[in-house]
Design a protein around this nucleic acid. Structure first.
Lengths: 154, 154
DNA sequence: TGATTTTATATTCCATTTCATATATTCATG
DNA sequence: CATGAATATATGAAATGGAATATAAAATCA
């Protein structure tokens, strides 16, 4: 014979709001997993920001700064500064286009590729370890949904 | 009769690395969805940081600063400063415990509750809209997986 | 074509955030 | 119980990030 719990108990049992809030779960899982990987990134002697830029550039021919900013999830003004540093380090290069002289194309350099290659491999191990106790099918579902969420309004 | 594409084509077709990288997909979806909601938060006259703190505190009795920092995903020293501001605004209060005089318990105030209430309701609409073209079952799967990822090593 | 608007990037200024460390308190151990 | 290690929070200096704006080039259109 089930009966409803007294109000006080219900109150006490209520799971905190954020624990089932999608945006929180996304932020928290992202924070947790990326946090783990950042140790590896730093060990490689490269900054998290730079890793993000390189990972986004690695198999693209060159991207407009603004495009790239959208991809790496940085403000344009912030990315300008990050690219300044990375250019000084020789990890990326700015290139101008003929057709539109406002545009700056950011390209990964050979040195950039060398820096990022071991990290790309490391992601495979890390990802495997991160999902080691999930169903493979669920992971496929997960990525599919995340892709839809990223596209947004679509 | 299928035959494998020439290497050059394969190269050209290769999807950029990040597009199927779990950590990127998590970061990007989180960024996209939270970004949408932040407009609502600011419209309420409250800062994103403060929203996060209040949302974490709202149905808890009071939390140690460090515990709370873990929950809101802030560095401890950062949270100290955010709490300073929020205390001045009357959104939260610091309380000391008798047993351990090092500890500071952070509690949401009545005013904090009042500020956060409309936002909590707003999350329901926003979440509904964010997932409007997903299967309900998939959303359940999604949240379940994210919870596992947050717990980590478990 | 010249004026106006829009787009792309850079710059400046300021708030936020981090890193390292200080301070206070408790815990563990000889 | 005294002393050293560990834990909780706070603080200060330095780096980062974001909003607004400047600059430059292209697009629109009257």
């Amino acid at each position: 014979m089930k009966q409803s719990a007294p109000a006080v108990l219900v109150e006490a049992n209520a799971r905190p709001f954020v624990e089932d809030y999608l945006l929180y779960l996304l932020a928290a899982s992202s924070h947790a997993l990326s946090g783990e990987f950042h140790a590896t990134v730093k060990r490689q002697g490269i900054k998290v920001n730079e890793w993000r830029v390189l990972a986004c550039l690695v198999d693209r021919p060159g991207m407009m700064l603004t495009e790239l900013a959208g991809l790496v999830l940085f403000e344009q003004s912030h990315l300008t500064k990050v690219i300044d540093r990375m250019e000084r380090q020789g990890l990326v290069a700015r290139a101008k286009t003929k057709e539109d002289r406002r545009k700056v194309l950011i390209q990964i350099t050979e040195e950039g590729r060398k820096s990022v290659a071991p990290l790309i491999s490391a992601t495979r191990q890390h990802e495997a370890s991160a999902i080691r106790n999930l169903d493979l099918a669920d992971v496929v579902t997960l990525k599919g949904i995340l892709k839809k969420l990223v596209l947004g309004k679509a």
